[in-house]
Computed example of a mutant assay.
Amino acid sequence: MGMFDKMKDKAGELANEHDDQVEQQSDAALDRGKRMADERLGDQHAEQVDKGRDILDDRIGSGGGDEGQTPP
């Protein structure tokens, strides 16, 4: 097992131990990205931006459970 594999495993362990904090941080990052997209795109694409934010939250948030699958 290489160094990067060990680091990846350790990061996964830490993420599992601090699931609530990881979820809060990912939500905050997604919210910042949504605000930036809304500022640049305006109301014209607000529905698509909201949908994309929700899809990403489902994929990277805790309880996503669909790892390895591509979104529809």
Rank of each mutant, 00 (worst) to 15 (best):
A28V: 04
R59I: 05
L30V: 05
G42E: 04
D66K: 15
G65W: 07
A46R: 11
M3Y: 13
E17Q: 09
E17A: 07
E67T: 08
A29V: 12
G68M: 02
G52K: 13
D5C: 00
K51D: 08
H45A: 11
A29C: 08
R32S: 14
G42P: 09
E47H: 15
M7V: 11
D19A: 14
R40Y: 02
K8E: 05
Q44K: 15
D50W: 00
D9R: 10
M3P: 01
V49G: 05
A15Q: 03
P71V: 09
R35C: 02
G65Q: 08
K6H: 06
Q48W: 02
G68V: 02
K34P: 05
D19Q: 08
G33D: 01
V49A: 12
A28H: 07
D38C: 03
G63P: 03
I60K: 08
Q69T: 14
A15L: 02
Q24F: 00
N16L: 03
L41T: 05
G2R: 07
D31S: 13
K51P: 02
M7Y: 06
Q25D: 14
D38R: 07
D20M: 06
P72C: 10
A29T: 14
R59S: 02
N16V: 05
K34L: 00
D50H: 07
G61M: 03
R53L: 00
Q25L: 11
E67C: 02
R53A: 08
E13L: 02
H45T: 07
I55E: 08
G64V: 03
K6P: 03
Q44R: 15
M1R: 11
G65R: 11
H45F: 15
N16E: 12
K8W: 03
G33R: 07
T70K: 12
F4L: 13
D58S: 04
I60M: 08
G64Q: 06
D9T: 06
H45Q: 11
G2S: 15
G65N: 04
A29N: 10
K10T: 06
G42K: 03
G65I: 06
V22G: 00
Q25S: 12
E17P: 01
P71S: 12
D54Q: 13
L41H: 09
V22C: 08
P71K: 07
M3S: 13
T70F: 10
D31W: 06
E17D: 10
H45D: 10
A28F: 07
G52W: 06
K34D: 00
L30I: 15
M7E: 03
T70A: 05
D57V: 00
A46Y: 04
A46W: 04
H18L: 05
T70S: 12
K10H: 05
Q21S: 09
M1S: 14
D54C: 01
Q69R: 15
A46K: 15
K10W: 10
G2H: 02
D27A: 13
D66F: 03
D50N: 13
R32T: 08
A46M: 08
H45G: 00
E23R: 07
D27Q: 15
K34G: 00
K6N: 10
G61Q: 05
I55T: 13
H45R: 14
E23Y: 02
P71W: 09
M3N: 08
D50C: 04
A29F: 06
E17V: 01
G52C: 04
D66Q: 13
G2Q: 06
L41F: 11
